[in-house]
Amino acid sequence: MLAPGLQAKLEHRELLREWEPVAADAAKSGQTFGGTGPRAGAGLTGWLVVALPEALWVPLTRGVYWSNRPHVHALQTWTD
Rank of each mutant, 00 (worst) to 15 (best):
G35V: 03
A26S: 06
L48D: 03
P4K: 11
W78I: 04
A27D: 12
D25T: 02
L52M: 03
P38E: 09
R13K: 08
V49L: 15
T36D: 06
N68P: 00
E54K: 12
G34H: 06
T32S: 13
P70N: 03
H71W: 14
A24R: 10
H71P: 04
G46N: 09
G30T: 04
G5Q: 07
L10R: 06
L2A: 08
V58H: 01
H12G: 12
L16N: 07
D80N: 10
R13A: 13
S29F: 11
E18N: 10
R69S: 08
H12A: 15
D80W: 09
E11A: 12
A27G: 11
W47A: 13
R17W: 00
A51G: 15
V64H: 02
W19K: 04
D80R: 14
Q76A: 13
G41P: 05
L44T: 13
P21V: 00
M1K: 15
A51S: 15
R13Q: 12
K28G: 11
T79S: 09
R13W: 11
L48Y: 04
E54L: 07
Q76W: 10
H71K: 12
A74C: 01
K28I: 08
V72E: 07
G37M: 00
V22E: 07
N68E: 12
T79H: 10
P4A: 06
R17E: 00
L60C: 00
E20A: 15
E54R: 11
G63R: 02
T61I: 08
P59D: 05
V50W: 06
K9V: 15
A3P: 02
L60I: 00
D25W: 04
L44A: 14
E18Q: 13
T79F: 10
E20V: 06
V50K: 05
P21A: 04
L6I: 08
P4Q: 07
E20I: 03
A26Q: 00
E14F: 02
L2M: 07
R39T: 11
A40Q: 11
D80Y: 11
L2H: 00
T36Q: 09
D80P: 10
N68R: 12
P38V: 10
P59C: 07
G46D: 13
L60G: 00
L48N: 04
A74P: 01
F33V: 08
E18C: 09
P21C: 03
R39G: 10
W66E: 00
G63F: 01
A74I: 05
V49G: 14
